[in-house]
Design a protein around this nucleic acid. Structure first.
Length: 445
DNA sequence: TACGCGTGGGT
DNA sequence: TACCCAAGCGT
């Protein structure tokens, strides 16, 4: 029975002894500066230690203090976060730094309410900061801890449920040894990271294997119980590498994304969504799509611009449309318009967003998977067309409507050297790097 | 509550 | 290869 005090003391004391000998030398363990602990905890959310280490060094060097972070331009903070993902973490981190500067004189508070009230600091991070940096007995229950506890105490509740986490927080508080909150929090996570791993846990070298109920029941591999995540939904997009002319000769056009939502505040290539499922919501869109699909299916040759397809997810999406079944019973790649249709859609779509271009050829395809969306992007080289034939009052109205809908109106012309001045999501870094390296090679001959 | 929100490594 | 994930938070 897990509530027996002697087993609890055994667990905590064996765990701490193990940690004292086996803990890794990590950059944020070299001090107890609450700022360092805080930054590391935010970076480590859903992110591996090996990935975080170089980012942590760069971030602390660039923003040495909470006040330095508070005073920096947001674009600088995002640039420092570029490639790390979940960019709201960076924007919330800076927002909280400004909070601390204004409300607490630039000093990280240690009170429960104060810490938990910081932007981007939830129950886990609040507990981590208070226990690790201030040695306060506080629970920091993350995925590691839930895995360790679910196995040791044979807790079979779904760890995706908030109730399970709060229950484990209560359990942790009963386990914290007097005066060693900081080490205990880190030891719990360290055991999860090094020994009590998700797959093939190293029970034979585990310091607490003797009384681990999960292992004794032979359930160490099937714990913790966790509901599966949904597969990402596919989205087809057409992107433009817009080459400038005149004073913008040799440069290409980028734009800033809206201040909220996916990749908020990051820079990108102008692009439009052309997912068939999205347009099929309206009858008009479905009709247009079925026309395109028929071309592909009748010939029996379904053009495939991208390699892999989440066919299961695609099938689910297709069922909600009202398009005739013989039209939708084809793989998702029919959603990719023919090259000719794509050129028209890209021209019209970007014009409606205030970007007049003339596509001059397909450049490359790029696939990028987020946690919840899979972008299948087709990239076209385009030239900026100052005065498109069809530019009219209607176009101006559509452009205004797009802006109202949250589209950004912040555009820049950049060259290869400007890459280091703007923060891009990975998928655009890949495309831009490819483009600029090819242009450099061509230009140097 | 459930979903939106990135990325790269492991198997 | 095609998943599965890894030190969560905001809404």
């Amino acid at each position: 029975m897990h509530t027996e005090r002697n087993h609890d003391r055994y667990f905590s004391s064996e765990l701490l002894d193990w940690y004292d000998v086996n803990k890794r030398d990590l950059p944020w363990r070299r001090s107890r500066d609450p700022y360092h602990i805080w930054v590391s905890e935010i970076m480590l959310q859903q992110t591996r230690v090996d990935t975080v280490i170089p980012y942590f060094h760069r971030f602390i060097e660039r923003f040495p203090t909470i006040e330095a972070l508070a005073d920096a331009p947001e674009d600088d903070v995002l640039k420092c976060w570029e490639g790390l993902g979940y960019y709201s973490r960076a924007r919330n981190l800076q927002s909280a730094a400004r909070q601390i500067t204004e409300q607490y004189g630039g000093v990280m508070p240690s009170g429960k309410e104060e810490v938990a009230g910081l932007k981007g600091v939830g129950p886990y991070t609040a507990g981590a900061i208070r226990s690790i940096a201030f040695n306060i007995p506080a629970a920091a229950v993350d995925g590691n801890v839930m895995r360790v506890l679910s196995r040791y105490f044979l807790i079979e509740d779904d760890i995706m449920k908030i109730k399970t986490r709060t229950r484990m927080e209560e359990l942790v508080l009963t386990l914290v040894p007097e005066g060693r909150a900081s080490d205990f929090t880190q030891a719990l996570m360290e055991l999860g990271a090094l020994i009590c791993t998700p797959k093939s846990p190293k029970c034979l070298v585990c310091p607490v294997m003797e009384h681990c109920a999960g292992r004794l029941e032979g359930k160490e591999e099937s714990l913790p119980v966790k509901t599966k995540a949904k597969p990402p939904r596919p989205e087809h997009r057409l992107a433009a590498i817009v080459e400038g002319t005149g004073v913008h000769e040799g440069k290409i056009l980028i734009r800033k994304r809206p201040a909220s939502g996916l990749l908020a505040g990051m820079w990108e290539l102008p692009h439009i969504e052309v997912t068939s499922g999205a347009s099929a919501v309206s009858t008009k869109g479905a009709t247009e799509q079925s026309g395109l699909s028929a071309v592909s299916t009748k010939g029996g040759t379904v053009a495939s611009d991208t390699a892999s397809v989440h066919s299961k997810a695609v099938a689910e999406r297709s069922e909600v449309t009202t398009v005739p079944s013989e039209t939708v019973m084809v793989p998702s790649n029919v959603a990719v318009p023919s090259e000719k249709a794509a050129v028209i859609r890209l021209t019209d779509g970007l014009l409606a967003e205030g970007v007049p271009v003339r596509p001059i050829g397909h450049y490359m395809d790029a696939e990028h998977t987020f946690s919840h969306i899979q972008w299948k992007m087709s990239v076209y080289r385009c030239v900026w067309q100052e005065e498109p034939e069809s530019l009219s009052g209607l176009q101006a109205a559509e452009s205004a409507a797009a802006y109202e809908a949250g589209e950004t109106n912040d555009f820049r012309w950049i060259d290869a050297g400007d890459m280091e001045r703007y923060a891009f999501p990975n998928v655009f870094i890949r495309i831009l790097s490819s483009y600029f390296s090819k242009m450099d090679g061509a230009g140097s001959r």
